[in-house]
Nucleic acid binder design. Structure first.
Lengths: 343, 343
DNA sequence: TTGAAAGCGCTAACAA
DNA sequence: TTGTTAGCGCTTTCAA
């Protein structure tokens, strides 16, 4: 028999106690590494636990003790790999701390986000990681007033004073734009993200700032409002390319929109990067796989997951940890989708 | 105030009962849609619940009632989008049935898989969805003997008699190979998956069968054993291409290895599909994004998630449902990575 | 139709 | 160092 821990069903602390000839309080002490147990007794109890294949019932434990050792994570969806990377980062930290992970996809039911949060905060999880929350204002105030621990990931809400980790979106956009300018581009199209998100605003501002710094006039004609989705990226790029004087480069606010833009360029019979340069944002796994490999602004997604989780675990240990927002650095990843403009 | 459900902390069934002027048993009845409550009383209790912002404590409920309304899902990792698709399918069904999802990544701790399963089965979740399990034999027997409900996803274990959903791997590989043959290819390289997995074996067999059916001799020289990873796909493809008489087409057992193969072809200075045709398997989201778009065998990943979840929920409702294995159809998706061989 | 009360399996405070 | 016991918040009999 390889592992005895699965052998029997419904072994409780009572069976263990009677088998080992102790009270069940003592078994509980052994389980919780309480020092006040004679080494010999501990030994005997542990052996019984192994023999019987006892496994604690976490429902009962948390009912009695108040902690579930589960972290809830709310994500909008799992589509692009963007979220997957963040989850990997979270998961790594959680495993180290031996917490479990409860995953909630708000994808299909944005309206229910607040209700999810309600039920989760009600004893289901010890803390919450909110990835790209849609309308955090709906519940953050209440979470705060309950002193329920949570950390926001990748939501640069303006003026909100709560624990959060994000990335230097402004700087990333600035650098990417500057890179295109230094290649010689002056007509640089920009496709925004969903402007409700602070990150999208920051990226646009970084773009504007770089133009300004290099004395290139900003014009709305080169900017298209979009939604972070591939198809919209395609449409916006089409629109940009159909102008009388089209841009020589397009900077999309995320990678999947950049993929959409690439589709548009090809459909117009043009080549990347010979005719049009393309830059994305995020550096999701696909970015390096696609051909030509996409030059993009790297977001430290995995690391954002790590850091956010560490913050949350710290908050769990010490609820009075002062609130902080962490911005992790982005970096330009130069690949094959850009070159100087023709002529 | 938008939602009152988050307003107060720790409202229990007791407060609701005293506020509404009933016993807490009655509140419980209302909560559980018990018919034996006067409409008027029900009304009053429901109003109180709303007013107080009461939310049930699921830990307590499951301790008392035995059900958690949580489904556990074990996945190897979240890297490629492959798993993400399956999870989306699972999640959709779970939301409909209002079950919660507990996600376990066995990625970094394959050894612990059996222990996870132990703790989960011990009251933490009502049922288990095992995606691409590594060594199911370690615990499946025990799960079975405990009558703990579970469904395997995408594991074509040989001779195992347990609930499972998979895809028609043999047929998919057969069709893809036949497609290449009909284009005129006769030297078709094949890169296998991790041969511990039944799916990988089936794909290889499908390939062989198609060759056989078209009177093309099978030779080991054109087959490379691999692991489902991109880098190994690259290496195997390199190896294949470096042969004295290289293949004119390469069929990889999954998409990410096909991506690796594409890298190898390019590194050899050859073009796809002009010089070498490439076929993958899975049809993960990246397959259509990459350039040239990958011709591949579509696995109905999302649908596999749906179906598996439905099976599990059925099993939960009626534990005596006869065990069945479902094979969902694969389909060839023709894109731009193949053409007839040169000359 | 409702109330009362016995657990579910465990933690933690209190006694011994 | 160990035993005893009061809950944790709820479901579910059993009575009324």
């Amino acid at each position: 028999m390889k592992s005895s821990s699965l052998v029997s069903n419904n072994v409780t602390i009572f069976e263990v106690a009677s088998q080992a000839g102790v009270s069940y309080g003592t078994v509980s002490r052994v389980l919780n590494q309480d020092q006040h147990v004679k080494a010999e007794t501990r030994e005997r109890v542990m052996k019984t636990i192994r023999d019987l294949g006892y496994v604690v019932n976490r429902q009962a434990r948390s009912l009695a003790g108040g902690k579930t050792h589960i972290i809830g994570i709310l994500v909008p969806d799992l589509g692009t790999g963007y979220i997957g990377e963040i989850i990997q980062g979270i998961n790594t930290e959680l495993q180290i701390a031996s917490y479990d992970l409860m995953l909630y996809t708000t994808h299909r039911t944005p309206v229910l986000e607040a209700d999810y949060v309600a039920s989760l905060a009600q004893g289901m999880v010890d803390g919450l990681l909110l990835v790209l929350p849609r309308n955090p204002e709906d519940y953050i105030g209440i979470l705060n007033s309950r002193h329920f621990p949570f950390v926001l990931i990748d939501h640069q809400g303006i003026g909100q004073n709560c624990p959060a980790v994000g990335a230097t979106n402004w700087q990333g956009a600035y650098n990417a734009t500057e890179y295109l300018i230094q290649l010689g581009h002056t007509r640089i199209g920009f496709i925004t993200g969903w402007m409700d998100l602070g990150a999208a605003v920051d990226r646009l501002e970084g773009y504007k700032a770089a133009l300004w710094a290099h004395h290139i006039p900003f014009t709305e004609d080169l900017v298209r409002q979009s939604t972070f989705h591939q198809l919209d990226g395609y449409n916006c790029a089409m629109d940009l390319l159909n102008q009388p004087v089209p841009p020589t480069a397009i900077f999309a606010s995320n990678d999947v929109m950049a993929f959409g833009a690439m589709d548009a360029v090809r459909e117009k019979g043009q080549r990347i990067p010979e005719d049009i340069s393309i830059v994305g944002f995020d550096d999701i796994p696909q970015a390096s796989i696609i051909h030509p490999a996409l030059t993009t602004v790297r977001q430290p997604l995995r690391n954002m997951g790590n850091v956010a989780t560490q913050m949350l675990l710290e908050l769990l240990k010490n609820p009075d940890t002062p609130t902080k927002r962490i911005e992790l650095p982005t970096g330009l990843v130069v690949r094959d989708s850009c070159q100087p403009p023709r002529g």
